[in-house]
Design a protein around this nucleic acid. Structure first.
Lengths: 143, 143
DNA sequence: TTTTTAATGCAAATGATTTGCAAGAGCGTT
DNA sequence: AACGCTCTTGCAAATCATTTGCATTAAAAA
């Protein structure tokens, strides 16, 4: 067996190995991120966490998000407007389409776009470290 | 004759028409934006403007950027890290490649990528209002 | 269970950007 | 050229999201 795709890495184990303590707030936040389907911001995570343990503070949410991001457990997205939003990592790479009316985030992926990006960067003499492709739109009125 | 591409719109005229006053700070800031080749942030614009008229305030820079953005005279970009950066509008649409080491911004355009974006949005039932494609990279080491 | 030291909660600090307000300056009019 | 109406400005204080200092609490090592 290997730990490639197919089942998510065991972050708790990974944290223990790195000497990072598994605390109650961290467990709760990781659980929230794992269960959620959307892309919540720190305040939303704080509220969901508060519902489980009202003693959790917003600073801890922020600190934990930074920690998890550093571990590669989550991705941080700075979409337009206000706060950063998060999603658990582990899935395939994808880009985002943001619904301007609802704030909903739809994930998509295009190998052709990725390839074109590489091609462009190469032709400009650059190596891409990472990129950001976000489409902002609204639901089509008539099909 | 028409006022399509080829020469930049006369924003001062447009402002007068809209009842917006042509003030000294606004003139200076517009001039800075027009002359600049890079993508300065508010603080850089403030410093360049201060060199011309030291009485200009940072708030006025921010207010003017917002005004010009509303007029379509400039574009605001929220690249990674800190402050928003601006560029005068008027050119063709393009995306950006940001040099992670220097902060330099290289503009590029790909009709194929644009077309693919449209195609993706359409297939998801959306109309794109605007998008954001940013490549973050470093200069290729060996060619 | 005692110790060691990282993690937490709270409040205060940051950094970018915005805003309230009194003073100042465009510009259409006289 | 001076007048007056308001839009603009500069300054300081306010916001907003996020970070940080510090005394206290709590993992996990002994």
């Amino acid at each position: 067996m290997n730990q490639h795709q197919n089942h998510k890495p065991d972050y708790e184990r990974e944290m223990r190995r790195a000497g990072i303590r598994i605390t109650r707030p961290r467990k709760i936040i990781l659980q929230i991120l794992t269960e959620t389907e959307d892309h919540p911001d720190a305040m939303e995570i704080f509220q969901r966490a508060s519902a489980i343990d009202s003693s959790i503070s917003l600073s801890t949410v922020y600190r934990t998000m930074k920690l998890l991001e550093g571990m590669g457990a989550i991705h941080r997205h700075a979409f337009e407007g206000g706060r950063a939003r998060f999603e658990q990592a582990g899935g395939e790479h994808h880009d985002h389409l943001i619904d301007l009316d609802t704030g909903d985030v739809i994930e998509f992926h295009s190998n052709r776009i990725e390839a074109l990006q590489e091609e462009i960067a190469r032709s400009l003499g650059y190596d891409i470290v990472h990129h950001r492709l976000e489409l902002y739109g609204r639901k089509r009125k008539k099909g």
